[in-house]
């Protein structure tokens, strides 16, 4: 009886997973197809017609060379590294303060971060630009790094979520050994936040990696182009080379997938970890 029930539950589980996979991937078929088509082929065949030559990597080559992707990857890597390190430090620090200590402004700070997430960015863009400019950051990587570094409510909440499950007894026993709050944070709390940090690195990192608005507006210098802005080398007012853009999108996603696969095991390992008590 139980066996039957659990098999049907398992069937249902895998069925939904496969359905999820199907719906996640199906819309992307056109991108994959287009990336292997020649320009004429793209213009003259249906988007759902498979490419004539599955080994036509011309678009990939064009995207990589003409899109100056190597430089883009380099700039993006620098920006991501600095802003993610900063973001994670800032986020865990403020979360530590908010979770471990009770003080007067605590609720206000929490609310300030929450409401900041609700600000419609459309009309504040002009003022943000003026501030960035006044700080002398315009047309430097500093502009993007600073803008990406600011932590947000999601980050704070997920860090707090994990700290909730890190017993304060750990802190107390460390304090008995004479550890300072800073040592407690850097030696005990921060390492135990690894799954949360990985989650946030993935979420934040993908946002930064794919953003083209901030790089275009705040650092238009061609030497500072990022991987995401390189896509626009194939998109102009008179026409877009979608076959090349699709190849570029496929190229751009490769590092993301690799990074994701490398990182994601840290997330669910949390389930079996014994350290968090």
């Amino acid at each position: 009886m139980i066996a039957i029930k659990s098999t049907s539950a398992a069937t249902f589980k895998y069925l939904t997973l496969i359905l999820g996979v199907f719906f996640a991937l199906a819309p992307l078929v056109v991108v994959l197809f287009a990336s292997f088509k020649t320009s004429q082929e793209y213009h003259n065949t249906n988007s759902l017609t498979p490419p004539a030559d599955w080994f036509n990597f011309d678009n990939y080559r064009t995207a990589f060379v003409k899109g100056n992707m190597l430089k883009g990857f380099k700039n993006t890597a620098i920006i991501m590294l600095v802003s993610l390190v900063g973001n994670m430090l800032i986020g865990t620090m403020i979360a530590y303060v908010l979770q471990r200590f009770t003080f007067k402004a605590r609720g206000a700070i929490m609310a300030a971060f929450l409401f900041a997430a609700l600000i419609p960015g459309v009309t504040t863009q002009v003022i943000v630009f003026k501030i960035v400019h006044a700080l002398g950051l315009f047309n430097t990587m500093g502009s993007a790094i600073t803008l990406y570094m600011g932590t947000d409510i999601i980050g704070i909440y997920i860090f707090i979520q994990f700290m909730d499950n890190i017993s304060t007894q750990l802190d107390e026993s460390a304090m008995l050994d004479g550890a300072s709050y800073f040592t407690i944070f850097s030696r005990i709390i921060f390492p135990l936040l690894a799954p949360a940090i990985v989650t946030m690195v993935i979420i934040k990192g993908i946002g930064i990696y794919n953003d083209f608005y901030i790089p275009f507006l705040y650092m238009p210098d061609p030497d500072l182009r990022t991987i995401s802005t390189s896509l626009f080398a194939f998109k102009g007012p008179f026409g877009s080379h979608w076959e090349t853009i699709c190849a570029a999108v496929m190229l751009i996603i490769v590092p993301t997938v690799i990074a994701f696969l490398a990182l994601q095991k840290y997330i669910y390992n949390g389930f079996t970890q014994g350290a968090v008590k």
Partner: peptide, 29 residues
Amino acid sequence: LAGLLSGCSGNKNNDNAGNTASATPSGSS
């Protein structure tokens, strides 16, 4: 913060042919 950041970015600005510096009110530029 402003002082801190503009201090940091000063050397990055150098090779930008000065057009970033033109409008920057901060002392470093």
